[in-house]
Design a protein around this nucleic acid. Structure first.
Length: 447
RNA sequence: GGGGGGAUUCCAGAGCGGUCAAAUGGGGCAGACUGUAAAUCUGUUGGCUACGCCUUCGGAGGUUCGAAUCCUCCUCCCCCCA
């Protein structure tokens, strides 16, 4: 009897706030939030800036929050900041932002919804199915005069100026002289975002806004507005900025952002990104970016500490993240490619693949097309790397790399920078696999 | 408006007539160690037809056998006094 009760409770609900707490994803929460979620079916929203037609890893923490919120039985709203995206949030930025036109916004919104659907349920079949809204839809009809009369009147400039996001842009001190000043447009941002919250409160009974810690100021402008305009009580919850142990920016590599769109960042690169996290970060990230339970993560951490060389944490993290954001099949391809590239692959093992397999395994590896006939009489390795392809920036760099023993052709080290590459090097009569250092692969396709 | 300081290779920052493709640190790249980790250590970090040549020290001229270094003008930045 007791056992059954326990299971059913566990199945019905996880406690959202407690869940975030142990996952290290709770920065600030307004008093009463946990009680609210406990007591009633709640709707919460997260704002997403539609600056591109794909989310990137920087968005992933927020996406996971929506997912967990839905898992805890409540209803998430993904708010596309069509209107706010046109203004630009001054929080955490030192410069005014470019504005987006409507056509781009709509396109981006559709793409983002598709990506979000992999994480949360938008089907409308459940009571807590997620919905997507775009604040442009209610803001575009709102006249300036109406807005400043109805909304602008409710808050004082004094209140708005007290926000850190505004303060940091108001002063131009010696320490921080790349600060640009704040336009009226940007100053208005918090009011517009605050109005979103009010609008959702009134129309969708949305009582909670969640966001990254930099959003706290904007969110509380919203709860304040709800208090004054609607006499209601609304809540705020934020998570901490995701950091890296070495102080670098999370989610960026030398090659730029890690995107969720496989066209921008291949499954292989996506998988590799997670696999390459340091031990310290992996322990933190696996809590944030997977839905693995507390017990299981604790077990994984212990196992990892016993045999860190197996990188169990990184592998599990990379697996879960890749399957969630891409698919099980993409994950398998990524593993296959990784095994070939980082295992004991030789030219012989590479030759076992037929052309299609080869291409599908290496689709995440940057490819360079060259004319096949250049190999007939042979081509100098330096010309191939620096001129026929842009694999390396200059011949000097190629020479240096070879001298440092950092270049492999078809998995074999090559130090002779006078080497002539001919058709003998073509795998399947078509491919040459170039490796720079340990991790950077390039595929030359001859056709 | 007056006075002063500055602009150097990816960044910070030395150099102040030849020995300067330019110290040092950071970053990048590579190697060793390991686990495709972190830390550490080492090498490397303008280009090329490469013991030589070419292009670089805010821009344009000039002085000189020779200039990142000296002079003139211009542009932009910072500081101080009004």
């Amino acid at each position: 009897m007791l056992v059954i009760l326990k299971i059913s409770i566990k199945k019905i609900k996880m406690n959202f706030v407690k869940e975030l707490e142990w996952r290290g994803m709770l920065q600030d929460v307004m008093p009463g939030t946990e009680e609210l979620l406990d007591k009633e079916f709640t709707t919460a929203y997260l704002g997403i800036d539609p600056t591109a037609d794909s989310l990137h890893i920087g968005h992933l923490a927020g996406v996971m929050m929506l997912k967990r919120f839905q898992q805890s039985g409540h209803k998430p709203i993904a708010l596309i900041g069509g209107a706010t995206g046109m203004i630009g949030d001054p929080s955490g930025k030192s410069q005014e932002r470019n504005l987006l036109d409507e056509e781009t916004l709509r396109h981006n919104q559709e793409a983002i919804k598709k990506q979000l659907s992999k994480f949360i349920d938008f089907s409308g079949k459940e009571k807590n199915s997620a919905i997507m809204v775009n604040n442009y839809d209610w803001m575009k009809e709102f006249s300036f005069l109406d807005f400043i009369r109805d909304i602008g009147k409710s808050l004082t400039v004094n209140y708005m100026m007290a926000k850190d996001s505004v303060k940091s842009r108001m002063s131009r001190d010696g320490e921080n002289n790349d600060v640009e000043g704040l336009s009226f447009t940007e100053f208005t941002y918090q009011l517009v975002q605050g109005y979103d919250f009010l609008h959702l409160y009134q129309n969708n009974n949305c009582k909670l806004q969640i966001g990254g810690s930099d959003q706290w100021g904007n969110i509380t402008t919203g709860t304040e507005l709800i208090r004054r305009k609607a006499g209601g009580k609304a809540f705020a919850l934020t998570w901490p900025l995701i950091t890296k142990a070495d102080g670098g920016k999370f989610g960026k590599t030398e090659k730029g952002n890690i995107w969720l769109d496989p066209k921008r960042t291949s499954s292989y690169e996506f998988y590799q990104f997670w696999l390459n996290t340091s031990d310290e970060d992996a322990e933190k990230y696996i809590k944030i970016f997977t839905i693995i339970s507390k017990e299981e993560i604790e077990k994984l951490v212990l196992e990892h500490k016993e045999a860190p060389n197996l990188r169990l944490l990184q592998k599990t993290l990379a697996k879960e993240a890749t399957i969630m954001a891409h698919s099980e099949k993409d994950y398998e391809t990524a593993i296959e490619a990784s095994a070939i590239l980082f295992g004991n692959g030789t030219k012989e093992t590479l030759e076992k693949f037929d052309e299609n397999t080869f291409l599908s395994v290496f689709k995440g590896v940057p490819q360079f097309k060259v004319e096949k006939n250049i190999f007939n009489s042979g081509i100098a390795i330096l010309d191939l790397l620096a001129e026929k392809t842009n694999i390396l920036a200059s011949k000097g760099e190629a020479r240096r790399l070879m001298k440092d023993n950092g270049l492999s052709i078809n998995q074999e080290k090559e130090q002779n920078s006078e080497k002539i590459i001919n058709t003998d090097y073509l795998i399947n009569d078509k491919f040459i696999l170039i490796r720079q250092g340990k991790k950077n692969y390039f595929l030359i396709v001859a056709e």
